[in-house]
Computed example of a mutant assay.
Amino acid sequence: MSILIAILGIIALIGIAWLMSNDKKNINYRAAGIMLAVQLFLAWFMLNTAIGKKVLQAIVDGFNKVLSFGNEGIAFVFGDLSTKGYFFINVLMMIIFVSALLSILTYTRILPLAIKYIGGAVAKVTGLPKVESFVAVNSMVFGDTTAILSVKSYLHKLSPNRLFIVVTSSLVAVSCSILGAYMQMVPAEFVLVALPINVFSGLILSSIVCPVTKEEDEDIDIEEMIPEKSLFEAIGNGALIGGKTALIVGAMLITYIALLAMLNFILDKLVGMSFQEIVGYVFAPVAFMMGIPSSEIVKAGSVMGTKVAANEFVAMMDFMKMIPKLDHKTVGIVSSFLISFANFSSIGIILGTVQAINGEKASQLAKVGLKVLLVATMGSVLTGTIVGLFL
């Protein structure tokens, strides 16, 4: 029954996107169908086949090995404190090492070339323009703002529909620099499964809501992704960016968790419920539509609502406490849903990034900011639902 409900949920998401579409005549149904089929294949292969499970486990083991190198650096700096399980030290400090590693792979052109050609393959298979496909794949590695900055020279050429797709697909993603942090909070296999599926979730729904044609296509210049002039500059910049990211995430967590505590105190006095309980009931129908067991939809909904209202880290902090008591299917669906930047705070960050590049485009984006967040959240729902089909 849960599988049937999830299938109906996927149909409902696509139906809602169709109703929201501003150009139904030019919707590329072929592209949407191909991308949905790729998502289903990826989820089935990684979660339901012996080979896929071995591949996924090998990737998880590889990531864990890389993280173990980061732990060496953390242990050297923090000594015995690194064995105490402090969130700031053991989780956030890992962002510095991973960010530096990504910077090395970028300087050596390994990542830019991979992103360019994978994005080109996505464009060729689906019929979508290269810029949109490039940003979607780029977002899987570098996150929303960096992905947008990598195509800043093309931004002024983008129509409102193309801008919508670029921004929305970048929100239905996360940065690999913080994957290590996620993998220490939720099951690593679901973090890695969600990454490629997210690429297509954002593109499917945003390209239905705001269709584009491939006639407006451009070639991608990867040199814009490589600002450093030497390897040591790349390592230094990567570490500094990682350090800033860790501090920003820490500052946001302090702020949001403190605000939630204050809000919960007020709500408890007024209505006898916490914010998480209220959003749990609001998101419960969505959780049910995703195939989560009915006995757990309110708990799952509370995590999902917290993620949209605050951010994924705040939601994961709550979710970590629930995981041992939840069904495996619920854990997989919610974990996959959480692996994206689709939340209110990210809209402000994206607007600021676009404003710094092109004020006119930022003005266009500001008018559809809530619509972008809605479609990006629907993309996260689509990812979680597809993962749930194979659990």
Rank of each mutant, 00 (worst) to 15 (best):
E277C: 02
V298P: 05
W44Y: 15
K361C: 12
I178C: 04
F341T: 00
A121I: 13
V167M: 03
Y29I: 14
V141R: 04
F190S: 01
L326H: 08
M317Q: 04
S153R: 12
T49M: 09
S380P: 08
M225G: 15
P129G: 11
I5P: 11
M46K: 06
V135P: 06
L13H: 02
K65W: 14
P285S: 14
F344A: 11
P285W: 09
L13A: 04
V172I: 13
T126N: 10
I118V: 14
I96Q: 02
V38T: 06
S133W: 02
L270Q: 00
Y154R: 09
L92E: 06
K329F: 09
M290Q: 09
A114L: 15
F97E: 01
K299P: 06
D318R: 13
A136H: 03
V334C: 10
F313I: 00
G127T: 03
E360M: 07
G127P: 01
K214L: 12
A366H: 12
T255Q: 04
M35C: 06
V209T: 10
I34Y: 04
I95N: 01
A58G: 15
G143F: 05
K367G: 00
N138C: 07
K65T: 13
G15H: 11
G180D: 10
V174C: 07
I197M: 12
D217L: 13
L171R: 01
L260M: 15
N26D: 13
V298N: 07
V66Q: 00
L382T: 08
S335F: 08
S302E: 10
L171W: 02
G301M: 02
I241E: 13
G52D: 05
I59S: 04
D268W: 15
K371T: 08
T330I: 06
M1W: 10
V167T: 06
A234K: 05
M185D: 05
V151D: 02
A147W: 03
Y281N: 12
K53E: 15
K244S: 15
V334S: 06
F390W: 10
M183P: 00
I208V: 15
F45N: 14
A239D: 05
V331T: 00
V141K: 05
L231S: 13
